[in-house]
């Protein structure tokens, strides 16, 4: 689907008896974005990479514990969570970072914005379309893993794979939102993608390593450690998925125990709020900036 046809669709939408609404514009842009994404190389690459990594994790973990018939919080769940932590933020960030900046660079954005549509609608449409494409990617990857695991008779807590899929999608949305903010601010697509990779490095490695250093050298208190780790969406995803998979958080040592003692049943709400914040705040900033200066 090319630029012309999107413009056509918008014009067609505008000519209809029903006056063009925000929702319709957003959906039109989203649909176009989704179609483009699903056909793009990165989507296929990420889907295949995610599925293959997941399968690798599944095979290795069942090979190790195989035959004992023991279940528990084993290597499978840990491996899958680990893989999601590594891959999904990268997917979300780069998908978001490429969206606006590359359209702008190719001159498509100017064309699009000449149609009866506001910058905010374009931005949210793009977000929606990419989010659905990421959902498809995650579902295909984790679904294949689940099928392989069940075929191998790996005992896993029922529901944990569904939780994992849902929470991965939440993480992907948060990262997509950050990626779109980067994309809106960056002048060039290459800068945007580079920044996205840097942010990925920071969120996945640097903050954790920094916090570890803080724990060891500054004798950080447990409550501070827990609160600080809530600031990192990747950590929030990890703690949430452990919590949701039916594992008690004491697997995470004193900080996990503190979280359970202190917040107990409210943990789901706290994690959800943090994740929602990471989805909403960057998107709001991005849309404000984008509405003011869509073309830089």
């Amino acid at each position: 689907m090319n630029t012309i046809s999107v413009a056509d669709e918008l014009v067609v939408a505008g000519r209809r008896t029903v006056p063009p609404s925000h929702a319709r514009n957003v959906l039109t842009v989203a649909h176009r974005e989704l179609r483009e994404a699903v056909r793009s190389r990165w989507f296929i690459l990420y889907t295949v990479a995610f599925a293959v990594l997941g399968l690798g994790v599944s095979f290795v973990s069942t090979a190790v514990a195989g035959g004992t018939g023991l279940s528990g919080f084993g290597r499978t769940t840990a491996g899958l969570i680990n893989m999601v932590l590594l891959v999904v933020p990268l997917m979300g960030l780069t998908a978001g970072a490429g969206s606006v900046a590359s359209d702008r660079e190719r001159g498509m954005l100017q064309y699009l914005l000449a149609q009866p549509v506001t910058p905010g609608e374009v931005l949210f449409g793009k977000f929606l379309g990419l989010a659905v494409s990421l959902l498809a990617c995650l579902c295909l990857g984790l679904g294949t893993c689940a099928l392989v695991l069940s075929w191998q008779g790996q005992p896993t807590r029922p529901g944990s794979i569904l939780w994992l899929a849902g929470l991965s999608f939440g993480l992907a949305m948060a990262m997509l939102s950050v990626g779109m903010l980067i994309s809106v601010l960056a002048r060039k697509a290459s800068v945007a993608v580079g920044t996205a990779v840097f942010v990925w490095l920071v969120l996945v490695f640097v903050t954790d390593l920094g916090l570890m250093a803080g724990v060891v050298s500054l004798r950080m208190r447990i409550e501070d450690l827990f609160l600080l780790s809530l600031a990192n969406p990747v950590q929030v995803f990890k703690m949430w998925s452990l919590h949701a998979a039916g594992t008690t958080l004491d697997v995470l040592g004193p900080a996990g125990l503190y979280a359970m003692d202190q917040y107990g049943p409210r943990l789901h709400a706290i994690f959800a709020a943090c994740m929602a914040g990471w989805v909403a705040v960057p998107m709001v900033i991005a849309s404000v900036t984008f509405s003011r200066r869509p073309l830089i």
Partner: peptide
Amino acid sequence: RGGSGFLAAAGCVLTALG
């Protein structure tokens, strides 16, 4: 704990959705 059947079903649902 078994749950293989459930896991298979979950896998089917996810794959079908994607």
